[in-house]
Amino acid sequence: MLHLLPLTDRTWVKCREPRAEILWLDRRCFTSEEELLRALKEHKIVCVPDVVGVGDTDFQRFIEGRTLPLRRWWSSGQVSDAVFDQIVDLFREMTRIRPGMLAAKRRCEPEDRPEDGDTDGFLERLIVFMEDQVYDRNRPQFEGLFADLGVTDESFTLLRKSVSGLTSRPFCLLHADLHRKNLIVDPRGQLWVIDWELAMLGDPLYDLATHLYLMRYPDPQERRMVQEWRRVVERALPTGSRGWENDLSRILDFKRAQSVFTDVIRVSLKLSQNEDFNWAGLPLAAGKLHRILTAAARPLGLEAVPTHAQIMAALVRRHRETGAAG
């Protein structure tokens, strides 16, 4: 949960409550988000929040503005040209920050850091994290639900086969979570980028794929983003877009598969908050998982995606089994 604290009449900072351990479903590279933001400021990346020190504690300045509107059935989700251009410029600025340039401590061990340009190794580390820290770690609570949905240990073997053989590209800074709620436009029209806690150093094409997957641009704007991304990346980091024609679709497949593992857990937990089952929200939750499983069927090797009714039954069964165990 996010709290806002006033420091002065004009300056507010934000403070997060620690999240439950089970919800830490994404790999983190840097030890401190605030330390990373200070380092980014040193590299003249202006769209990140300021960090305010109060005693021995660092806080991020709250950015007043609006997040980008979500794509809905009544809205195309297209962003304005002014915002679009600022997102492209952000990619340019991140691309020029290479491994070893940031004075921010990293939490991952040296053996968990692939060599610069080892794009296969980079994606493999993300798969290992998903397999070990998301799937296996939460297996006692969710193995039955995953099995009901057709996801097993074999899914990781098939996923690796689906995404292997990426072209080598030089590494740079990645935000790794560039979606509409992390992009804020202030009253002057300036774009601010928040929530850098998942930032990492790695394959620049991964950041583009993640952005496209999360943003859900209308098709013409998505094609334009790919073209503009290629243009600015090649200027700032020659060969940084090499092999994108073959690799973008494979990294997008990884993102679709990743969503299965994280969203199955999140959706199930949300339905069972406070030990009460949200029966009214069950059809919507099952619909969301059905869409996610359908999108990830190919990289995960799902021969048949469970129906909406089967997914609802699996979610109810998981809730009842958990309640009985408790």
Rank of each mutant, 00 (worst) to 15 (best):
Q273E: 15
I251R: 09
L269Y: 14
G189A: 02
P218L: 13
K181Y: 13
M215G: 07
S241R: 08
T210S: 09
R224N: 10
E228Y: 06
P218T: 06
S268I: 00
E234T: 06
E228G: 02
P283I: 05
F277G: 07
A285L: 05
R188T: 15
R188K: 15
L183P: 09
I265Y: 08
W229N: 00
D207M: 00
L212Y: 11
R230E: 14
D253Q: 13
R188M: 14
N182G: 00
A199Q: 03
W279V: 12
A286W: 04
R216I: 13
L248F: 08
A286H: 11
G189C: 03
L205M: 03
A285F: 09
A209S: 06
R224L: 00
Q273Y: 02
S259Y: 06
Q221Y: 06
E197G: 02
F277C: 13
S259H: 14
G281S: 07
S241V: 03
D195Q: 11
M200Q: 14
L198I: 01
L173A: 06
R256G: 01
E228Q: 01
A209T: 10
H179A: 07
D177M: 02
E234M: 07
L282N: 09
L183N: 12
G202E: 02
D253P: 06
F254S: 08
F254H: 07
R235E: 13
W279Q: 14
Y206T: 05
L174H: 01
G240Q: 09
G202V: 04
F261V: 06
L237G: 04
V193S: 10
A176N: 06
V267F: 02
Q190A: 12
L237W: 11
S268Y: 08
